[in-house]
Each structure stands twice: as C-alpha cells, then as structure tokens.
Design a protein around this nucleic acid. Structure first.
Lengths: 336, 336
DNA sequence: CTGTTAGCGCTTTCAA
DNA sequence: TTGAAAGCGCTAACAG
C-alpha cells in the first residue's frame, strides 16, 4: 500500500495540513515540528502523489519545453539543463515540438497548455521571436521563459551578448590582417541571424573597413546552405580572405567549398563559425568559433521560469557568458 | 470557468458516468447515446483534467523515455517518433536521463516510476541491454518497451536485423573485390556493437575470407575513437583495403586518419559506416552506410508500449526495415 | 503556530 | 444499458 500524507501525519503526531506545509516550504511551522515531519517523511519514504497534488492545488507542477526544428545538438544541451533544473525543483517536464509555420500553431499551443494544465513554458529559438506567440501567452497569463529571444525587454529567460561575441571574433580576424571579410547569414527566422549580422557590421565599422554587400550571402544554418554560400563567395573575382559563417554547420559547408576549389584553410582563406558544436572539432582544420554555455542556459532559463511561476514578479533576464575558441581554421591574411 | 464532465453530462442529458464511459471507449453505451455525448464534448470543447483522471483512475497517462548519453541525432529522431505516438494516443511523455553506470541507477529508476506514477517506460540503447534493469522492471510489474535490445525474447519493442544489414554492406565491399576488410567495433556497452561484429564475421566466413584479429580494433562510437582506430589500422604493414566502422561518427574519424596519412578514399581505401546520420553526407566523399528508420522505431516502440499498458499480453517485438545507402566512400579494391 | 473541513474533477463500485 | 454515491490524495479556506 502506498504511503499517504495522512500516514505521515499520524506517525509524526501532527495534522495533514502541517505535513503539507512542511513539504511545500510554507511558513508558520515551528522548527522542531518541521524537523520531526521531515524525519517521518524520510522514515516512511513518503512521496506526494503528483495527481492529487495537482488536482487539489490547481496546478500541474509541469512545464513544457517548446521547440521547432532546432539542431539536435543544441536542443539536447538545452534539454539537459532544463531536466536538471526541473529535477532539483521537483517539477516535471514535457517536450513539445511546435510547427512554427503551421497556420494554427497558436491554437495548438493554447490547446496544449489547457489540456495538460501546464504551469509554464520554456521557449527556444526561433519560437522566442514569434511576437504572435509571446503576445498570446501574455494574454492568457501563462508564465514562460525565453532562451535567446530577439527582444528582451520585459521578458524572462537567458541571453548571450552575441553582438559582442561576434565583435571579438571579427577583431581576431582583423588583427590577423584580414580586410575582405565575408559573412554567411543564418536563417532569417532566428534573431541570432540579425545579431550576428549586426555584430559583423559594427566590427567592420569600428575597424574602418568598408561594408560590401557582395560579401554577405544568405544561408539558413545548414551545412548545405553554407556549401552554396561558400561556392558563391569563393568564386568572386575579388575573393574574401576570411569568411565568418553564422554557425558551425555553415562554416563546415564553406570549408568544403574551399576544398572543392583547391583552396587551403587557413592558408588561402580563413573560416570561422559560431556555437562550438561537435562538428567544429571534427572538420579539418578545427574551426575557430564561439562557445555558448548551452546547457547552463537551459538550466538558468528553467530556474527563472520556476521563480516566475511562484511569484509573477520574480523571474528575470539573465545574461550568460560566452567564450571564443581560437583554433586552426583562422590564420594570417595571405600575402599579396 | 473550465468545462467539467458534469457540464457535459447535463448538457447531453446523461450521467457523468456515461460520459466517462464514452470518453474511455468502454462498452455498454448505446450508439445513439455515445454519439450524442461525443457531440456535446465537441460543442463544449471539453478536455478531461489529467490530474483528476489520474487520481481517480490510479494511473498517470504518462510514459517516460529513458536514455543514457546517446547521440543527440539518434535521440532526437527517436523522440520525435515517441512524441507523435503519445500525442495521438493522448498520453504524456517525460524524458529522463539515466546514469547507466551510476551504482544506484536501479533505485533511481524505481524512485522515478514511483514518484511520477509512470504507466510505462521506453528504453533506448544501451539501457535496453542492462539485464539488471529489465529484471527489476519485470519484478516491479512496470510495462516497458525496448528499442534495439540485445535480447528480444519475451520483450516488446522494435529491432532491426543489424546482422543481416551488415551482411549486405560487407557483400557490397566483397563484390568490389576487397579481401582485407577491417572493422572498428562500437562501444562495448551496446548490443549493436556485438551484432555488427557478428555480421562482419559471418560475412567473412560466407565469402571464404580469413578472419584476422589484427584487422579488428575497439572503438566507442565516437569520432575520436574512429580516428585512433583508423590511424592504427592504416599504419599496418599489410594495410586493409576497406574499413567497416560500426557507426558513421567513427567512419568519419577513419576517413580523417586516411587523409592525415595522404591516403585517398575510396581510391586507396574504402570506408563505410552505419546509421546514416547527417555527418555521412557532410564528409567528403559521402559515406556508404545503412539507414535505420529511427523515427518510426520510436513511434512503433511507443505504440507497442501503450498496447501493453492497456493489456499486458498485447505488445510485441516488431522487426523494422533497413536500407543500404551506397555512396562515394566505397569503391573497387586498389590494383596491386 | 496548528488543525478541521470541504472540495478539486474524475473513476469506481454497486445498484437500478 | 444507465446512474448515484463514494472516494482517489492532496491543498485551500477558515477556525482555533
């Protein structure tokens, strides 16, 4: 037979409500009583029944991680952080793919929240950039936390100063003597694409280098789009001496394009990416890139969400650190 | 205010219990009554409250996907299939990393099942191969479904005939004239490593080729282990003319080792992998490999689990199809 | 600081 | 074939 709160109460010589108070960290229990209850809970190995708790408490102790077609590596890292945070706060987590482009995706999210009675949501890019979604959630009064959202004002979650990170990466290239630096943009749905592009432009400006639209090509964060972009850029009459791709997958595509054309990296052209995914160390030469603390970002975003669930005025937007990874794919500008 | 089962009952002019019967597909309701109830449910947009349902019904309508440190690509594919199946059966899913090697992992799984009152589990490799875990779950009477387990007898889930798939892959190499074929083994914790090794040996035997232990090197499914294995194999005095790595990541490592040594693939050495992960198309030349229907495997494993939850004698072990992907990394044996 | 009582929304049991 | 009543295990509201 399962141990119930009543058993704990009897054993500890208190009322059910007192046990409940202790378990939920509510105030108004003497320290000795609290200790005695906790002892009994441990002795009986009591675990509250989540359904009963949810039904009576009118909340689910469940959050959902919403995503749309992200990179598996990225999502797994985020997930790991989210799971850690949920575990330590005795919350459950469900995952929900959300078709960002499907016409009724707002209603699908609504239905999901209603049906599962979710207490809160964690949004990953590019969902974090859907004004329609964020507005709808606000309107419904649902707590949510954003990972790397385009607009941070009044939101809770985590961000990374990508603009600044790109600035450092570009400074590295410029210090190596590069003046014709190209950029492969990311998928237009992602705020990250804009920040990385903006970081690229400001870095050029700061260094007094001219912005040349011919050196900027659209990609969509995939290897293939990087390959196509690389072919295009490296076929230019005035070839760039360095290429900054908005993520590692595209940078790998660019490096493949270079090798197709018989160009050596970094002797003939330097290449760098962003994200520090496993591929950055599996290609040759290893890729210069920027590392995000992705797992921690999931963790922190979740903690902020749980804070906000407890107290609507609590969660905040946390800035996370990044770290340049200087490796062998970038080198001095070719002579001549 | 939320619509409750009572509202539906009143509106439809029946009792709560009848609505409940209809919603749970229980027998003993006249067809007209059933139709009327369903109509009302739709009209009122009624969604049963999962907590109340679980509390009263003494089950959670929740399954968990258990994993330990798998490849992110693989897990994401499985996850997608699992989510699909859960969604269409109105089940929830939670994900749980499980430290396979941690000494108390059995108790951790127990605690998880108890605390969340899970109705069933989906196990991914290598958890599927832990006899201790499977025994414990049997003993506790918890339903579970296995993806690619080492032992299939009496279990439910999905498998793939990897032995046969490797046989076809090897036949392809042998048809190209290769006689010195090496093998890079997978991580010893995974049943897949054994099947792929066994497939390798039977294929050699079938072709009348000698099994040479010097041509078999241990790996652990990672790029780096493939790189190390490749260096070792390609430094052999009598170099193999083809290398079958037990997965794509290791095959990519082998190809890098070849290029370090100035060897060309497939002119000097043929390489093939297993799994058809994205990397197989991102390396050059593209990798010959075997495709598993991973997403479908997650889907089918989940459906079998849900069957078993409903009726303990229901779930079965389903054999899934595979498909050879012949690409450019394999070619005729070098002359001489 | 602590306890009592009345539900939460559903399913189960048993009766009609 | 259908319904009424009694909980499931917990928390909220209120009382002491």
């Amino acid at each position: 037979m399962r141990v119930r709160i009543e058993d704990v109460a009897n054993q500890a010589g208190v009322s059910m409500k007192t046990v409940s108070r202790v378990l939920n960290n509510e105030p108004g229990v003497r320290e000795v009583t609290r200790a005695r209850v906790l002892e009994t809970v441990a002795a009986l190995n009591y675990r509250p029944d989540p359904s009963a708790r949810s039904l009576a408490g009118n909340r689910s102790y469940l959050v959902a991680l919403l995503y749309d077609n992200p990179s598996p590596n990225y999502l797994m890292e985020i997930l790991t952080g989210v799971v850690e945070a949920c575990e330590s706060h005795h919350y459950g987590m469900v995952m929900q793919p959300v078709g960002y482009h499907s016409p009724d995706f707002l209603d699908a999210v609504d239905a999901l929240v209603m049906a599962s009675r979710l207490d809160g949501l964690i949004l990953t890019p590019p969902l974090t950039d859907s004004a329609a979604l964020l507005d709808r959630l606000d309107q419904r009064g649902i707590a949510f936390s954003c990972i790397s959202p385009k607009h941070r004002e009044g939101r809770i979650g985590v961000t990374l100063d990508e603009h600044e990170a790109v600035g450092e990466l570009m400074a590295h290239l410029i210090a190596l003597g590069h003046q014709r630096i190209a950029h492969v943009r990311g998928h237009p749905d992602h705020g990250a694409s804009e920040w990385r592009m903006a970081g690229y432009r400001s870095a050029l400006r700061r260094a007094g280098l001219r912005y040349d639209p011919a050196l900027v090509v659209d990609g969509e964060f995939s290897f293939d789009s990087g390959l196509a972009a690389g072919r295009q850029l490296l076929a230019l009459a005035e070839r760039p001496t360095a290429i900054f791709a908005a993520n590692d997958d595209m940078a790998a595509g660019v490096m493949r394009a270079a090798s197709e054309l018989g160009l050596r990296v970094p002797r003939d052209v330097s290449v760098c990416g962003f994200d520090n995914t496993p591929i950055s160390q599996q290609i040759f030469p290893a890729l210069t890139t920027v590392q995000q603390p992705t797992r921690d970002m999931g963790q922190v975003a979740t903690v902020q969400l749980l804070n906000a669930i407890r107290d609507r005025s609590a969660g905040r937007m946390v800035r996370m650190p990044y770290a340049l990874q200087l490796r062998q794919s970038t080198g001095p500008v070719p002579a001549g």
